[in-house]
Structure formats: C-alpha cells, structure tokens
C-alpha cells in the first residue's frame, strides 16, 4: 500500500513546489517508486521545476474527466527511472478536481507506487483541501517568518480536522516540519526567527532545515530539482531530510552561522 504524503504550508511561495520536486526525486533515488502530483490546477509549475514542461500531454483533470488514461498522463522522469510526474491542468480551474476523482487517481496510483507526493497549492481552499485530504503524512513547509509560521499552524489544524484520517477517526496524519529558506546569518543577527523558536511554536517533529541557497534558483532555471545539485547546501539538506524521512538518523546541518575565514571568502565566496 502506497503512502500518500502532502507537501503543504497554507502560505504561498514558501517552497512547497521546490520541496516536492526535491523530495520526490530523493525518494525515487533511494529506489522507492515515487509519483509526484501537482495539485495547483490553473497554476501548474511543478512541470517546470521538474524540467518536463515540454513533455506534458495530459494532466490530472483529463484523467478525472475520462479524457485520458492515467498511464498516458504520467510522465516518466528521464533522470531517475523510479520517478513519475502527474501534472496539473493549466487551462481549467480548481473546481475541475473532485474528491471522488482524486480518490480514484490515488487508488490507482497506490497499486504501482510506494510514495505518492501531493504538491499542494497555497491557501486553505478547495485545491489545498483536496491535496491534503488523502494524506497519511504531511510535510509542512515553513519559512522563518511570522506569517508563514502562523499559516503552518493553521494548516496543521486543518490536517487534524478535515483530512480523511480525521474524518474517519483513524490514526492522525503524521506531521513533519520542514523549515526552508533558513539563513543562519540573519538568525545570528537577530533578524530572522530561530529554528528553536519555530519548533517551540509549532511543536511537530523537525524533518529538516533547508538553507536559503542560490542553487535553488539555478535549479529552477534549468529544470533540475535542487537535490540533484549534490554539492549545493540546499541539495545536501534535502538529501538529509529524505534520509531522515526514511528512518536514518542524521544530524541537522546548515543551521549554524559560520564566520567565513579569509580564504573561504576569497575562494569559496559563493553564498551557497
């Protein structure tokens, strides 16, 4: 039976799609059959971040409306062969998704995949609710910033009351905190919320901390999930998070401010 994981946040623009792409790729790299679904109907972007935008033929709405079969809409990744992508529709709106339709898609995917990742749209409206409804686990993406932390708290409430697991009074959705765009330098200066503070407020287990990193933009420019940029701090941080998700014990990295020595400033001068 596949595990359904939603990547959610409430707030927009915090790194859900970046994290979904990285996580799906990381899980697939570890040999797990993984599919990542874009739930942002009308504002599809996962295809670009995954670099498959030129290969999209059908999307989840076509599948739900019976215009295409699931196998025809799935795009096989060319880099990691255990990875597939199910794109969102760009031309329809969120009403084109129905709970029954999504249920059928997820049920069918469960037969072939170990992990089904759902990249949620922002907000707490229909699209976001559908993305989290079937979840067994949730990765709550949070930036070290007041409004993001508050919205994460809100989405945790939604997970605990409006998910299928909640409605059916089953074991609750397993929650993971993923702090992204963390800048130890600004934390040190007191300009940014500390990791401890965020954990104190949200009180869910920490899965990882992804540093603010130039490599994320480079990755989206070229359509390669940042986890494939192995030397980059963000790539390594995502690799750690995936390993922790799979049960490995790994120390948090990239959380402390390191004063740059003369030589690293001269030669390793890239911020990330």
């Amino acid at each position: 039976m596949a595990q359904v994981i939603v990547v959610t946040s409430g707030k927009g623009g915090v790194g859900k799609t970046t994290s979904s792409a990285a996580f799906a790729t990381g899980l697939a790299q570890s040999g797990k059959k993984t599919v990542v679904i874009d739930f942002d109907v009308g504002l599809r972007n996962l295809d670009l971040i995954m670099g498959v935008e030129r290969r999209v033929v059908f999307d989840i709405v076509n599948v739900i409306s019976g215009e295409a079969r699931l196998s025809q809409a799935l795009i096989r990744d060319k880099r990691v062969d255990t990875l597939s992508i199910l794109p969102a529709s760009q031309t329809r709106d969120k009403d084109a998704l129905t709970k029954e339709g999504v249920a059928t898609v997820i049920e069918e995917l469960s037969k072939d995949f170990d992990y089904i990742l759902c990249d949620s749209p922002a907000g707490i409206e229909k699209g976001a609710l559908l993305a989290l409804y079937f979840a067994d686990q949730a990765i709550v993406v949070t930036n070290p910033e007041v409004s993001s932390v508050r919205d994460s708290d809100r989405i945790l409430g939604v997970l605990q009351s409006k998910s299928k697991r909640a409605e059916e009074k089953k074991d609750p959705v397993k929650e993971h905190l993923l702090v992204t765009r963390y800048d130890p330098n600004r934390v040190e200066k007191g300009e940014m919320l500390k990791l401890d503070d965020i954990q104190d407020i949200l009180r869910i287990p920490l899965l990882g901390v992804i540093p603010e990193s130039e490599s994320v933009l480079k990755a989206s420019n070229t359509g390669n999930p940042v986890i494939l940029d192995e030397p980059s701090p963000a790539g390594q941080a995502y690799k750690d998070a995936v390993a922790r998700f799979l049960g490995e014990d790994r120390k948090m990295r990239f959380t402390d401010y390191e004063k740059k020595g003369f030589f690293s400033r001269l030669f390793g001068g890239r911020a990330a």
């Binding site: 670009l48 030129r54 059908f58 076509n62 031309t91 420019n221 070229t222």
Partner: peptide
C-alpha cells in the same frame, strides 16, 4: 549562467500555452 536557459524554456512553454488558452484542449 543559467538564466538564458530559463528564458528559452519559458519562451517555448508559453508560446504553446498561449495558443491552447484560446482554443479548447485539442489533444484528448
């Protein structure tokens, strides 16, 4: 520099999307 690659990818994908925005999705 990766920005030129970003521009080229966008130009291609948007050219296609602008066409399909007008008409119905013809592929199915």
């Amino acid at each position: 520099a990766t920005a030129p690659q970003a521009k080229e990818r966008l130009q291609i994908v948007l050219a296609h999307e602008r066409i399909s925005r007008k008409g119905e999705d013809f592929l199915p």
